[in-house]
Write a protein that binds this DNA or RNA. Sequence first.
DNA 1: CTAGAGCGGTGAATTTTTTGCCTCACTTAA
DNA 2: TTAAGTGAGGCAAAAAATTCACCGCTCTAG
Lengths: 299, 299
Amino acid sequence: MRHLETFRLIAAVARAGSIRKAAEDANLTASALNRRVARFEEEFGSPIFERLPRGVRLNTVGELVLQHYLAQKSDLARLKSQIADLSGERRGHVTIACSQALLPYFLPEQVARYRHDHPGVTFSINVRDREQAEQELARFACDLALVFEPVHLVDFDVLHSVPQPVCAVLAPDHKLAEHNVLRLRDCLDHAHVAPSMRYGVRALMDLAAKQSNRALAPVVETDSFELIRHYVLHEHLVGFQIAIGLRPERGIAIRQIAEVDLPHGHLLLGQMKGRALPVAAYRFAQQVAAALDALPRAA
Amino acid sequence: MRHLETFRLIAAVARAGSIRKAAEDANLTASALNRRVARFEEEFGSPIFERLPRGVRLNTVGELVLQHYLAQKSDLARLKSQIADLSGERRGHVTIACSQALLPYFLPEQVARYRHDHPGVTFSINVRDREQAEQELARFACDLALVFEPVHLVDFDVLHSVPQPVCAVLAPDHKLAEHNVLRLRDCLDHAHVAPSMRYGVRALMDLAAKQSNRALAPVVETDSFELIRHYVLHEHLVGFQIAIGLRPERGIAIRQIAEVDLPHGHLLLGQMKGRALPVAAYRFAQQVAAALDALPRAA
DNA sequence: CTAGAGCGGTGAATTTTTTGCCTCACTTAA
DNA sequence: TTAAGTGAGGCAAAAAATTCACCGCTCTAG
């Protein structure tokens, strides 16, 4: 739609950091683009860029204007989606930012199920840590976020929440695998591999360890829960992951950790606050919420 | 802002019901306006008007487009308000749709208090019955609604809710004024004046009466609670109004009605769902919410 | 049954807006 | 100092929007 063209260019200028560079990308003269920006600022009643010697940068007002543009663009997308929907075609695209735990089982199943009913809908699934996921929501870069223990929750509209216990992952012949429920201190006494600080699992564990005057001392620290899951097979270590990312498979043992030692966290499904989602994203969110509710709860 | 010009014209056409009429109002040629509409429809990918022999009318898609425009315009207003706010000037305009009960005491006090702190903010206060108030919210025709017992609550985002009992209003020398708490049946046994069907007070009373196999039989039925308040002084009748619209004044008696006979209703402060309010409206809503909480509760 | 009024649509001319090109003034890094 | 980068502004060309003068259609008053 053409009425957002000026905003689009402004966003391009903000990204490029310079009118000339942005003009090149947009197949425009720097002069023309400069005028558009200037005219916008005049009409709007306030400058939106700081003029620096080596280019321009959005000022506070500009940041707000940009946010307004993103919201408008998003609502236009929702509008089009809604119109396509009422004319019978169920198509669209859903962009999801999610924690790693959703990758192996939950999301593939959910997406496949939704696409089985609505083959016209396509998906983008991006792995993001909880901080990034929230930022992407706020930037309208994704429609939905499905994250374990988000941090800030500003601009984060919680659509659904389910408790998720942290589980221990071990080789079946690991000594601790003899017990059904593990104590946290036992896990810490053994060599363990832990996710890095920015993940919710780690945050929960650090907090719980601190309360019993202990601390994690991981032999291997990693960004990848997939690595954790595989590494425990090579060396006799204890790994950790939330329940939704784990399924009983031969060759790997999954054990609960006593709730008194390590309280469960929350897996949250959320969207940008105040935003109306496109039809496809909205429907998918409903399906996911129902599926989360149907999840077997840890005893 | 010029980027919404086409939408503005579309809205004008929809209102006028004809391109030619709208063109006249907008100081444009019918031809020019026709082209704008046609071009929009082409870019947008779908017609938004039905062409009738005597003019045009928005189709379903058009209704959605118009709603999108109203939302955009509202968000632009919020943006400007927010920017004005961060540059220190606290100005703006707040439009409120409210029930009659708020007129004599509550709203005048609240508005005066807010304007005392922020003289730059102006107000529009419109009396609307509960149905109209909700419609105005949905049409972005007002920022806030303060209504007793709203009906549908679609697109109505409840910001605050307080219980409100219905009270009886009588002349001090009315026989019933001897009791502190009245029974509903006693009120109905006496001649009474009642608000018309579309008001929440009446709806509550009809429901309560029905449950004891009674019915209201008003001697006078009116749209105006002010008339009710004054009429009971001329003839010995019982009138009704919610507590917030009444204050003990000489020459008039206010009596509670037993809660078991007539359950209290709710006074709701609300806004359009999913909308971000301008700063002034938002702040005023906060003040009102606090004031509602500080209200003396009926025993 | 007909003439006229009112409607949306269209091609060509015209006006308004936007863009391209060139240059200037300025700042920074070499 | 020089060279390369930046945003701004004057002026003509290009593009877009508007006007003007029509057309065909439908409904209605006479």
